[in-house]
């Protein structure tokens, strides 16, 4: 299941034996060891794992913010060297500009890249509808709830028409209800825009509900534990969470993550690695 079995032209991003070491005061830390997997174009893929498994490191490398120590990340057939074009980033915190209203915040990424003109305006208008903020165009960030602010951040990440959206625990700071609502919204946005989404979460249910493929990561050192393809039918409604298949996927991911720990607590000889 190493991701090299698929058709390479079908992958928008390929991670090939990506390793990252950080030097810290206490010596070298192996943050990620030989991670390999493919992200199929137009698919929704989640990276799941406990903290210290290198999820965010992986994402930062895909965004060109960090360089792998060894191995390569190829996007659209080109090895990543610095931030690639055609990339949208959504972070755990919305990180909006407090002095700009909703439209103006969404415009930021187009301004940075230097896109302007009536086509861009039309695209932004469409996007505002897609992220469900049409009644809040002129609202300031502090007037919006956490979920709405994150919608603005998603709009901003999509404004310059990237083909790939990287999301680092975007709903982690939201309450449970808003979180579930935003999952539904994200699926809707995903199918409306046809983007490829790489989504980091530590919520197994969220990962199963959203994804075509789940990359389960293990910690210390961070590594790919398994890549699971989720064959639940689409479009998915909230009810899919109560099906037997959903429970099976959930259980499988869960046991991959907690398996180690359960064994350790059971004091089996394989506990240390």
């Amino acid at each position: 299941m190493s991701g090299h079995d698929g058709d390479i032209t079908d992958a928008i991003v390929s991670f090939d034996r990506v390793t990252k070491r950080f030097s810290t005061r206490n010596g070298e830390v192996l943050a990620l060891e030989e991670a390999s997997f493919d992200v199929a174009r137009g698919s929704f893929i989640s990276l799941v794992g406990p903290s210290g498994c290198g999820k965010t490191t992986l994402l930062n490398m895909a965004a060109g913010l960090l360089e792998p120590t060894s191995g390569s990340i190829v996007m659209d057939g080109v090895p990543i060297d610095g931030p690639p074009r055609g990339l949208g980033l959504v972070l755990q915190q919305p990180a909006l500009l407090e002095w700009r209203n909703v439209v103006s915040n969404i415009r930021l990424s187009t301004e940075i890249i230097g896109l302007r003109g009536p086509e861009v305006d039309r695209h932004i208008d469409e996007l505002i509808e897609i992220v469900g903020l049409q009644d809040f165009r002129r609202a300031m960030p502090r007037e919006l709830s956490g979920g709405m602010q994150q919608r603005v951040a998603i709009g901003r990440a999509l404004a310059h028409s990237p083909s790939l959206l990287l999301m680092d625990e975007p709903f982690a700071a939201l309450d449970a209800f808003t979180r579930e609502e935003m999952s539904m919204e994200l699926l809707r946005i995903w199918s409306a825009t046809g983007k490829t989404i790489v989504f980091i979460t530590h919520d197994i249910g969220e990962a199963v509900f959203l994804s075509d493929r789940i990359v389960v990561l293990a910690p210390r050192p961070g590594r790919v534990r398994e890549v699971i393809d989720v064959a639940l039918p689409r479009p998915r409604e909230a009810e899919v969470r109560f099906t037997k298949e959903f429970a099976e996927y959930h259980h499988r991911v869960r046991s991959l993550i907690y398996g180690d720990r359960d064994r350790k607590e059971g004091r089996t000889p394989h506990g240390e690695d």
């Binding site: 972070l91 915190q93 990180a95 990424s109 890249i113």
Partner: peptide, 21 residues
Amino acid sequence: DPKLLDLLQSLRATRSQVLFK
């Protein structure tokens, strides 16, 4: 917010864009 700076870097923002915007 350092995360916002990351985001700007991912868009290849120039130093003067970061300063003025």
